[in-house]
Amino acid sequence: MANLGIVIPAAGQGKRMGAGCNKQFLQLKGQPILIHAVRVFQMSDYVSEIVIVGAENDLALIKELVDHYKLDKVVSVCQGGAQRQDSVRSGVLALSPAIQRVVVHDGARPLLTLKDFHRFLQEAEGFSAAIMGIQVKDTIKQVNNSGIVTDTLPRELLRAVQTPQIFERNKLEEAHMRAASVGYYGTDDASLLEWIGYPVQMIEGSLENIKVTTPEDLWLSERILAMREK
């Protein structure tokens, strides 16, 4: 399980946050969201390398934060692409050849705990691709372009997908390269492996492992961290 490489895509602009800056730099309990997201992997004995992928204008700041918070497992801060998928591909290529299993985790998902990460790794053993997700609570309906309901999907078979997601590196690289060659974009990295026919295992996630997308998410993240401190 050791010798994992972590890719943290952090190049999104976070327009829904309305903060006027990359949401990963917003403060959460006195530290940038991105630092919360990276630190769990810095603490894990299973992780050998971390690559952070950022927007061109943010690279200098990310490097300053890496130095300031002494994140010595970060081996590269590289420039992202036009889409998240392009950024992940760049991050994977920045890992050393020794890394054979890759974990992808959102830079705006700061509440993953070390305990949940290690449980995820344990349950992902033996699978070439595994992702974290939680069962949906609401009834999900499919609609057409006019807003007319066309189907009610079976809730017990649906999951809201989170990160981390873990992959055998050769399969992840194959999926990304084949997608890039034909201009195919998936909704996440797992969807690329699904697209070329590789099985992906779903592993139960955590309700607290939220992605910070809106101001309400930031408020909720602060409440969750405050509860953990108690």
Results as ranks from 00 to 15, higher is better:
1 M>N: 07
2 A>H: 13
3 N>G: 03
3 N>I: 04
5 G>Q: 04
8 I>V: 09
9 P>L: 01
10 A>F: 06
10 A>T: 08
16 R>M: 13
17 M>W: 00
17 M>I: 07
19 A>W: 01
19 A>G: 10
21 C>R: 14
22 N>C: 10
22 N>G: 07
26 L>N: 07
28 L>R: 02
29 K>C: 10
29 K>F: 02
30 G>F: 08
30 G>Y: 08
31 Q>S: 11
31 Q>C: 08
35 I>L: 03
35 I>F: 01
37 A>N: 05
37 A>G: 04
38 V>E: 03
40 V>M: 03
41 F>D: 01
43 M>Q: 15
47 V>H: 05
50 I>L: 06
50 I>V: 12
50 I>Y: 01
52 I>N: 09
55 A>F: 03
56 E>M: 13
57 N>I: 09
58 D>E: 14
58 D>K: 10
59 L>Q: 11
61 L>G: 10
62 I>A: 08
62 I>K: 06
63 K>M: 14
64 E>S: 15
64 E>V: 14
69 Y>N: 11
71 L>M: 15
72 D>H: 14
72 D>M: 13
77 V>G: 04
78 C>Y: 01
79 Q>N: 12
80 G>H: 03
87 S>F: 00
91 G>T: 05
92 V>F: 02
92 V>W: 01
94 A>S: 12
96 S>I: 10
96 S>Q: 13
96 S>V: 11
98 A>K: 14
98 A>E: 13
99 I>W: 02
102 V>L: 07
105 H>E: 09
107 G>I: 08
107 G>T: 09
108 A>D: 15
110 P>S: 11
115 K>D: 15
116 D>N: 15
118 H>C: 12
118 H>E: 15
120 F>D: 06
121 L>Y: 07
121 L>G: 08
124 A>Q: 03
127 F>V: 08
128 S>M: 12
130 A>N: 00
132 M>D: 02
133 G>F: 00
133 G>Y: 00
133 G>L: 02
134 I>G: 03
134 I>P: 01
135 Q>R: 15
136 V>F: 00
137 K>V: 03
144 N>Y: 00
145 N>Y: 12
145 N>P: 06
146 S>T: 06
147 G>F: 02
148 I>M: 14
152 T>A: 01
153 L>S: 07
153 L>E: 07
155 R>N: 07
159 R>E: 09
162 Q>S: 07
163 T>G: 13
165 Q>I: 06
165 Q>P: 00
166 I>K: 01
167 F>E: 04
168 E>A: 11
169 R>V: 08
172 L>Q: 05
175 A>I: 06
175 A>E: 06
176 H>L: 15
179 A>F: 00
180 A>K: 05
181 S>A: 11
184 Y>I: 05
185 Y>V: 11
187 T>E: 13
190 A>S: 08
192 L>N: 00
194 E>I: 12
196 I>K: 04
199 P>L: 03
201 Q>W: 07
201 Q>E: 15
203 I>V: 10
207 L>M: 11
207 L>N: 14
207 L>I: 12
208 E>M: 00
210 I>F: 02
211 K>S: 10
213 T>L: 12
214 T>M: 08
217 D>Y: 06
217 D>E: 09
218 L>E: 03
221 S>V: 05
226 A>M: 10
226 A>S: 14
229 E>L: 07
229 E>Q: 09
230 K>T: 11
